[in-house]
Write a protein that binds this DNA or RNA. Sequence first.
DNA 1: TGTTCTGTACAGTTTTTTCTGTACAAACTT
DNA 2: AAGTTTGTACAGAAAAAACTGTACAGAACA
Lengths: 186, 186
Amino acid sequence: MGLDQNQWSEEEHQAVQRIRKRVIEVVGRNMELYGITLSTGHLYGLLFFADKPMTLDEMGREMQMSKTSMSTGVRTLLDLNMVNKVWEKGSRKDLYEVEYDWYQTFTDYFATQWRRAVESNLQVLRRALKEIDRLLEQPDASEFVVEILTKDRDKIRQAESYYRWLDRVIDAMEDGELYKLVPRES
Amino acid sequence: MGLDQNQWSEEEHQAVQRIRKRVIEVVGRNMELYGITLSTGHLYGLLFFADKPMTLDEMGREMQMSKTSMSTGVRTLLDLNMVNKVWEKGSRKDLYEVEYDWYQTFTDYFATQWRRAVESNLQVLRRALKEIDRLLEQPDASEFVVEILTKDRDKIRQAESYYRWLDRVIDAMEDGELYKLVPRES
DNA sequence: TGTTCTGTACAGTTTTTTCTGTACAAACTT
DNA sequence: AAGTTTGTACAGAAAAAACTGTACAGAACA
């Protein structure tokens, strides 16, 4: 794992690796919550324990995967702000390390995902409401279609109300209100 | 859409369908947030607008897909509590309708997903902590491995702290505390 | 400027997921 | 009890996603 192995025995190395591997395995798997691949999750776990920022080549060696895959994996993690690029003089390779502020990672991720969905949904719902209202204003609308349209409108309004709520939840996450409800430790 | 089309003109039908289709398309796509397929998302959208509970055959006809797919799709949505099975005398087919309480759906889904991850992560982290402590107690541990183990332990403790927080967030969602921070409308 | 090295684009392969048609068990009807 | 009908299991086809190796542009160095 990029450590100078002369400084410790083989058994010690093995023991540490065994512990890390199990944690990486589980944490990596559960990162599917963030919509990332199992292998990208493992990559994250690897970086989590890395004693120093890693290069693509090092990751590839540890993961036994191609550098191309490391490149795309790291990019995914960068996009999610789960990994940061690190500058280090001397090395001309790019170096990466995990973002250790998991609270931030969590908040960032879901705020971004949900916001995107909320915005596009609200847009289409409002547009639909307008069109329904326009149709309802037509004097020659059959009684039957008026009933249908009214029902649809109610459903859409309810959905809109929900998305406004979710939007406020996202706000609460982004500006730290959530931490008032559920405080961080220490 | 299961409506008696004698009661309204073809243009009216088309107009309603056009509006619904656009909403279904967008809402369905954004349901990938819930880890469900685009087509299952569409199925959900279809049920959302349905004027009455639908059968698998009706869904298949509307979606232009096989009944098998409808069966699996509905089961997915049932598992996520996004759709309910409805009993109606006279029909011997199973009937389904969407769960209109989106707040509940949202809360349910993420509480379940996150809880599963939190539990398995906490378990593996605590087990790792124990092992690290055991190794650290060994008198013949090299200075170097002690340093590594201590670093790992710190990282794991930090992660553990984060998961405890997330666990409390989930609690807050499940027992409705979240609605105190961000109230529902009306 | 020429040389070396690093990250990624891209095409092709492998793996995974989704979807369909058939077959059948269980439930309902007569 | 015999005859329908309904939902799903299962195997195979189709589609999508993940992964790899090669090739190359651009940066770093000499």
